[in-house]
Design a protein around this nucleic acid. Sequence first.
DNA 1: TAGCTTGTTCGTTGTTCATCGAACATCGAA
DNA 2: TTCGATGTTCGATGAACAACGAACAAGCTA
Lengths: 114, 114
Amino acid sequence: MKQAHHPELDEISLTAVMAALSDPIRVGLVLLLADGRERGWGELRAPVAKSTLSHHLRVLRDAGITRTRQEGTRCFVVLRRDDLETRFPGLLAPVLAAAECDGVGRQVELAASA
Amino acid sequence: MKQAHHPELDEISLTAVMAALSDPIRVGLVLLLADGRERGWGELRAPVAKSTLSHHLRVLRDAGITRTRQEGTRCFVVLRRDDLETRFPGLLAPVLAAAECDGVGRQVELAASA
DNA sequence: TAGCTTGTTCGTTGTTCATCGAACATCGAA
DNA sequence: TTCGATGTTCGATGAACAACGAACAAGCTA
């Protein structure tokens, strides 16, 4: 369980962010994190195998959308809302609004809190 | 040269739009069309083969981002800015701003006007 | 009619991606 | 130390995609 790479502000690429947000499961994950609360991975319920979930969370991290923190064997993830707002002002909110309105990512849910 | 399908407003999918905008060339094309002017395909200069350009324009059309019109053997393309604004309010502007600021799609240029 | 121009479509190639199960690593707890 | 829980990584696979050249279709134009 190595510490993963998090891109710096100026390393965050627009196309990488767009690509990361072009998958419904990842959009759902971002929606769950939209309240700014940090979540343990055990709280995230998605209809995919855990290796696949790990992959999706890695894509989000590599794109600079989320930040991952490790504590013991557990991992926690949080939205880099401020960083995204600085880098691409006004981009995140419309995406989240549209996703919520459309029901994109509704397959991703929150488990009983850890 | 058949008339291509244009998705209706409610057929435009968020993830499809995000996916379409995750390619630098397509972002460049959208940037060129951002002024609302209709452009002939001959005006679009991108560093790809014409078949590839045709493909990219098709992806944009299928995603509901652009509208294509045929006139004789020529094709014209225009940004569906109002439709996008209706469907996903506030989404397009930040993307275009970020792209322009970052230089994403600067490889796509405008030829000497037709 | 015979070209020329303009786009589309096709077949191919190589890459990327989403997905899975299995194996591995790590830490905490019994 | 042994076990269980938690993530990561490793192939493997099938699908999607970007890219190209070549061939085709359709409409001007000479």
